[in-house]
């Protein structure tokens, strides 16, 4: 099948789907009464998402990604600079690739 057949209409449908997920959380919350506990839950959820992403990536990527995360964490704690952290993580990952571990 010619791969251009799905085409622009399909892409538009995909785009609309993703857009709906982007606004759904906020729209849902605007219809629910906010309590202090609910707000605490939402804010904790924010941190939890990032923890989950990082942990999953370490599990999937093994030593290379895990050490990159450790390096990023170390630099962030030492310098409070996210760019230093990113550089450290990328450098460690690149070193692993270079040494073909």
């Amino acid at each position: 099948m010619d791969a251009s057949v799905p085409g622009y209409a399909t892409i538009a449908a995909m785009a609309l789907t993703v857009y709906v997920t982007r606004i759904a959380g906020s729209e849902l919350m605007s219809r629910i009464a906010m309590t202090a506990r609910l707000e605490a839950m939402l804010k904790t959820m924010a941190a939890s998402v990032l923890v989950a992403i990082v942990v999953s990536e370490c599990a999937r990527g093994g030593a290379r990604d895990s050490l990159a995360v450790v390096a990023a964490a170390a630099l962030m704690l030492a310098t409070r600079n996210p760019y230093a952290a990113m550089t450290a993580g990328v450098a460690v990952a690149a070193a692993f690739s270079f040494l073909e571990i």
Partner: peptide, 20 residues
């Protein structure tokens, strides 16, 4: 990936977790 670029996002997220 040999430049370690694939570790960029996860390093950024680590930094954001610690920033809090």
């Amino acid at each position: 990936n040999r430049f370690g670029i694939d570790a960029l996002m996860v390093s950024y997220f680590t930094a954001m977790i610690l920033a809090r």
